[in-house]
Design a protein around this nucleic acid. Structure first.
Length: 285
DNA sequence: CTATGGCCCTGGTTGC
DNA sequence: TGCAACCAGGGCCATA
């Protein structure tokens, strides 16, 4: 559930404590977190490297490594549902639910993950590992024209298509529901049927909602997501539909309904987002 | 190409 | 009060 705004916030907040630091040692409590590498392989790839840069691509926090001033692969951290990154200093105790730690020449980067779905993986060729991802929704490659033609060229329900990281990278369940509501589009609406004007509204909604969520350091929808400073995000107070099942739509007063679309809890305002005729009937309340 | 369903996980919530 | 059942869900995979 950490989506683009939460991942961006995480990268921004751990950056000062990590960028420029050298990895002295690693600790691994849960092997699957390494995504298939052995502890020995992971250790060899990471220990002795310097973290040259902390960034974000899609829902990944990316840590670029260097050795002797030359690129030496990257770590890709995917928070999935309950992953968190935190930096501790001195002899602060190891935080609860720690799965992987990088002991740095100053401080320690910890990856915490209650549900163990997250990944903390090394890639010698990070570009190849990220090659399948679609455009960044806040980047120059994500245009209204591109979105409109992308929707037209597919025949999928809007919600699963927007969740597809190959189509556009970084959206998850919460922000898709919010963006579709803002654009007045039903999640089961066929992508091919979306008119140009609606595609433009959807494009604007995605960009505006993500930007505002980043400003507020993401959303804390459950007890797990916290910024690396330990604070909850603030965007959840601005949710229009997500988690508002049974409450009144802030736009029109109609009761918000919860459906299931593609196995995902999905929130709609029946009036703002009219049910499309002929939509695949995947959704039920 | 598109859709569906299972799997991985465990803390918090719900129902009896 | 106690406890079992259920729920959340991103990405990946197999199947239709």
């Amino acid at each position: 559930m950490p989506e683009l705004p939460e991942v961006e916030t995480t990268a921004n907040l751990v950056r000062p404590g990590v960028e420029g630091r050298r990895v002295r040692a690693v600790e691994v409590d849960w092997l699957r977190t390494l995504g298939g590498a052995t502890v020995e392989e992971f250790t060899r790839a990471v220990v002795g490297a310097r973290v040259a840069r902390v960034g974000r691509r899609a829902k990944y926090v990316r840590l670029d490594l260097e050795r002797g001033g030359h690129a030496a692969g990257a770590l890709l951290v995917h928070l999935r549902m309950t992953g968190r990154l935190v930096v501790t200093q001195g002899r602060e105790p190891t935080p609860e639910w720690r799965k992987v730690s990088l002991r740095l020449d100053r401080g320690t980067l910890h990856f915490l993950d209650v549900r163990k779905f997250g990944r903390f993986t090394f890639h010698a060729d990070p570009e190849a590992a990220l090659a399948h991802l679609g455009p960044e929704p806040l980047g120059p490659d994500f245009t209204a024209e591109g979105l409109a033609s992308g929707l037209r060229s597919r025949r999928r329900a809007l919600k699963p298509l927007l969740l597809d990281q190959e189509f556009v990278a970084g959206l998850g369940n919460i922000y898709v529901d919010e963006a579709l509501h803002r654009a007045g589009l039903h999640p089961l609406r066929s992508s091919a049927s979306v008119r140009r004007s609606s595609a433009e509204r959807l494009h604007a909604a995605i960009q505006d909602i993500l930007a505002r969520a980043i400003e507020r350091e993401g959303s804390s929808f459950d007890t797990f997501y916290r910024t690396p400073e330990g604070k909850p995000g603030e965007y959840q107070h601005l949710f229009q539909v997500y988690g508002r099942d049974g409450q009144a739509c802030r736009t029109c007063g109609t009761t918000i309904r919860k459906l299931v679309v593609g196995q995902r809890g999905t929130h709609v305002c029946p009036r703002c987002q009219p049910v499309p005729r002929g939509a695949s009937r995947a959704g039920r309340s």
